[in-house]
Design a protein around this nucleic acid. Structure first.
Lengths: 217, 217
DNA sequence: CCTAACTCGAACACCAGCGTTCTAGTTAGA
DNA sequence: TCTAACTAGAACGCTGGTGTTCGAGTTAGG
């Protein structure tokens, strides 16, 4: 046990004196640990803490000085990854025609999903589903909002739960990432294919399935 | 090492004298081990070999007498599960209108996917992807064939790789199973919702999205 | 420049699951 | 009925990862 005490909260890693800044080298190390963890986990979801420390050019002890164990480390990696992703998606224009907006969103998300799929897999082994969900919150909300707007304009179907349409969106992107990793789908084809399928899936019964706009990157 | 010898193949579990039958009690035990493993893994993908043996009402040693370790056991479970599934799907009529046929297929597959999702998860941790793929072969082929037929009749799209349409089918079912397990989708709604989304996703650009036939179970 | 913050590596205890071995007992089935 | 097949269960050693401790060294930064 890290804490031999009974109740209390995290007794853990280097306690940060309230209101104080960490020392510069410490901050630098934390950053390289998260970097290393990200790339290690991307290559092997089972990478051990030792592997990660080594890849970060840091002692294992130092790592434990900053993170209360594997789970907390992975949580940090996942959190940063999704924060970065969210920032990237901020640059995407989600106004205008909902179908085009969704296509743009897929185009931008795709790369990220593809790149970090193994990180997600690692996280799924280590963290509870609610946590994974929580970390995705902002992105989830983004997609939900766009879908909602498309439903209001009548371009997206309303005969199934909205939540399901969100799930469909994520599901297709992750499936594409997996297929891609398995060599069953060409990476440079993925965005187009996902968008085409997704737009069709969202089309209300009775309406016509739109052709894909292949002009955009 | 199970084999202290150098080369040679599996030195492992009770060698079956060629052409001979196992003794009745042995066969019975093997069956209950696989049964127990299936239900244990369905409840917890990380269930240990010890847990499974206990659940099967069998000694751990006996289990090792029949399976060369956890991986082989899980392989057996997965294999049997998919063989059963395949048998069930044999009863489904996949002739006639491809859209209706696919709807029937989804209706029948859905229950299975939902029920055994955790078994799959366990297998994904233990077995290499190619193996998982191989075990799915017959079912995969079944879906592929149906989609191919729908493409020939012009009811399913041809502007994306066929493989991707197969992936889409599986992806949506598994996503529904997960959503269901997380309480985000009602189990009794799932089949309808999957079918509706999938049929739309498969519709060729320019065509009209069909309404779901809610009459069937 | 001096101290507190931080780092290092090796060593250690620990734990859980795996797979094996041994001895003894039970049971199928010719 | 008699033997070979099978089973039980406890004990053991192994492996691999986790988290902690120690003592000594380095470095940031007031």
């Amino acid at each position: 046990m890290a804490a031999s005490q009974a109740g209390r909260a995290r007794p853990a890693a280097q306690t940060v004196p309230p209101g104080t800044q960490r020392r510069a080298d410490a901050r630098r190390n934390i950053a390289s640990i998260i970097d290393a963890a990200t790339s290690c986990l991307a290559h092997d979801p089972d990478a051990s803490v030792g592997d990660i420390a080594r890849a970060a050019g840091v002692g294992r002890v130092t790592l434990y000085g900053h993170f209360n164990g594997r789970a907390e480390l992975i949580d940090a990696v996942l959190t940063r990854t999704l924060a970065d992703a969210d920032a990237t998606l901020d640059a995407v224009d989600t106004t205008g025609d909902p179908r085009e907006a969704l296509t743009r969103l897929v185009g931008a998300s795709w790369r990220i999903v593809h790149q970090f799929r193994s990180v997600l897999h690692a996280a799924q082994r280590e963290l509870p589903p609610e946590r994974i969900r929580a970390v995705h919150d902002r992105i989830l909300r983004r997609v939900r909002t766009l879908i909602e707007r498309g439903q209001r304009t009548g371009q997206f179907r309303r005969d199934v739960p909205r939540q399901w349409l969100v799930t469909t969106t994520f599901s297709l992107m992750h499936a594409a990432a997996d297929d891609c990793a398995a060599g069953r789908l060409r990476a440079d084809d993925a965005a187009r294919v996902i968008a085409a399928t997704l737009l069709a899936a969202l089309t209300p019964p009775g309406d016509t399935v739109p052709a894909v706009d292949t002009s955009r990157s």
